[in-house]
Design a binder for these strands. Sequence first.
DNA 1: ACTATAATTTGACATAGGTCAAATGCATTG
DNA 2: CAATGCATTTGACCTATGTCAAATTATAGT
Lengths: 185, 185
Amino acid sequence: MSITNFLSTLVAFTPEELKDILSHFSKESIVKNQTLVHQGDVCKFLYFVEQGMGRSYYLNEHGKEITQWFFGVGKFMTSADSFFQQTPSLYYLEVLENTVVYSISKENIDLLFAKYHKMEKLGRLVTIEMLTKMTNKINAIQFQTARERYDYMLSEFPDIAYQVPLGHIASYLGMTQETLSRIRK
Amino acid sequence: MSITNFLSTLVAFTPEELKDILSHFSKESIVKNQTLVHQGDVCKFLYFVEQGMGRSYYLNEHGKEITQWFFGVGKFMTSADSFFQQTPSLYYLEVLENTVVYSISKENIDLLFAKYHKMEKLGRLVTIEMLTKMTNKINAIQFQTARERYDYMLSEFPDIAYQVPLGHIASYLGMTQETLSRIRK
DNA sequence: ACTATAATTTGACATAGGTCAAATGCATTG
DNA sequence: CAATGCATTTGACCTATGTCAAATTATAGT
């Protein structure tokens, strides 16, 4: 999924608008396991994942990594709160494979939001989609057994579920690695 | 918190804009326990709560009500997904007290989004705030003990925590009524 | 191919919170 | 001010999942 296709499917931009918008993004290749944002830093960029995948996570009181979200191909990856409010990030952001992204700074996206009403709309739509997915996660995790939670994982992240370390998935689903290992059989 | 104040604190509208925007809302009084949206219906309105409170909930596989969110004074209340995509709602929406709201239809809000770039921005900001709160809920619920979850409830909904039936709060927090009752002592 | 290191699986045991049922408390209505 | 119906609390017992530790398997570097 290229960023051009992605933008076009949500809002009808003219070719000139698209060109202008794209010129504010820059393409980057990021090597596996690189950390893009550290907990406590202000997240400076929003990333569109063209290839590869990433995750956000935080360290709990015992210093254990808790995966907060996975970002696959065709999604925007960022520490949303930190990026949009320019406040310290609660999360680390890292890529889990060699990954190709289009990045845009807060200044540039604000510029686009201000310049194009349609871009503001796109921002709203993308945020609502994320909100819906968050809500789904809560419903899956809050009242379901460990096995059902894993089924949710498979349906929400089919492309990711088999490619990342077990522990990342277990912490995302709110269970221990051991439990997930037993379920997987 | 009046809707005028609320709108003004997020985006700088001119008095004329505000007047026009407000003219698309209508004030309504809703009696305690009235259901605004049924599961399966398309949610037709977005409500700004001026007085009172409401909640969204769904029925799980055993027919038990699971509270999904509480909406207090100064918040927008709706079944977000259903309202914005005009799809069947996963949730019931009901008021828990006699409540005063300002309601706006999907057509009218779309009209305002299209007419005022600033309104689109407001929509984006409100959605991001909701996304942040959802994320907080996940973090609270996923890895914390029953007691810590209740502390989260008190901090997120201080005005609501003592005014609604125990069962509503327990299901919101992902625990049984009995457990919450034991904790509260 | 051979280590070293990390990831996963397995086992034995512990416990927070669930379930079910009964008892108590509280509020609303005639 | 009974009487009825909900909401909350309490008790006894149960189970899914956590914890900790060891064994096994996969991965990556030389």
